[in-house]
Amino acid sequence: MSTTIEPRSAATADRGGAPSEIVRVHVPQRSFASELRAIKIVWKRELIRYRSDRIRIATTLVQPLLFLFVLGSGLQTLSAASTHGVDLKTFIYPGILCISVMFTAMFSAASIVWDREFGFLREMMVAPVRRSSIVIGKCLGGATVASFQGVIVLCLAGLVHVPYAPTLILGVFALQVLLAFAITAFGVMVAARITQMQSFMGVMQMVVMPMFFISGALFPVSGLPGWLAVLNRLDPLTYAVDPMRRLVFSHLHISPIARHILDPGVTWWSWHVPALLEAGIVVALGLVMLAIAIWEFSATD
């Protein structure tokens, strides 16, 4: 039935030299494999779109340079004394990596708002696949694109005196993938509710900017005023920046006092939170937001 080929009258077949048989295809029943395929397709589309968007690629390249060298070099002149000989650019490097990944992930998630506006979301929503596959594909796609950004920043490590040690590179890479995933999941969750691009961007800025400033991306997390310390510990980004900084500092040759001041590690009531737990927090938050996003998209018509 699926490959029935029937001869057709010349009148309809000759249009534009078309082959004279109808190619009849068949849509299989839904299965686990078809869901995996759907995830792959949605993921692949994100990558194709990213590749064809030159402005976005350019932003990807320029933005971290700006942050790192303009912000880093500028502030260095102020703070030379208190960084105990450590280049400020080295200190803020993990934070800059995180913010670059976050911005990219945010824009990736925004694509779901564009898709709705331009109708393409509908094309995906009516396909014989689960909504969850579409949402997962979107999150993975956004996370992949955001991870490219992280890789670019990783490549710049040498310029700010961060050594290219395999464990450091691998560790930071893994952490930024988790962060990229969590932020994309957050964005997709927001996009399920907020259908206007401007409102979406507004909400994202409102969340992402404070998250960035509070996280300790730009300052050490010990000896903060009480209110800021509390906010800092509540900020999910803290748990992405801190393990990255620990990884970077463990590969630096610096004085113990500098290490103690600049890389104190996150504490809960003076208990040092292990890096693995911190990474776990990021993953758990990402998964929770993914689950909410799936639930929200499945509930809509």
Partner: peptide, 12 residues
Amino acid sequence: LHAELYGVQSSL
């Protein structure tokens, strides 16, 4: 993309 989303046999 549409064909893949619907699981159309890739040979066709």
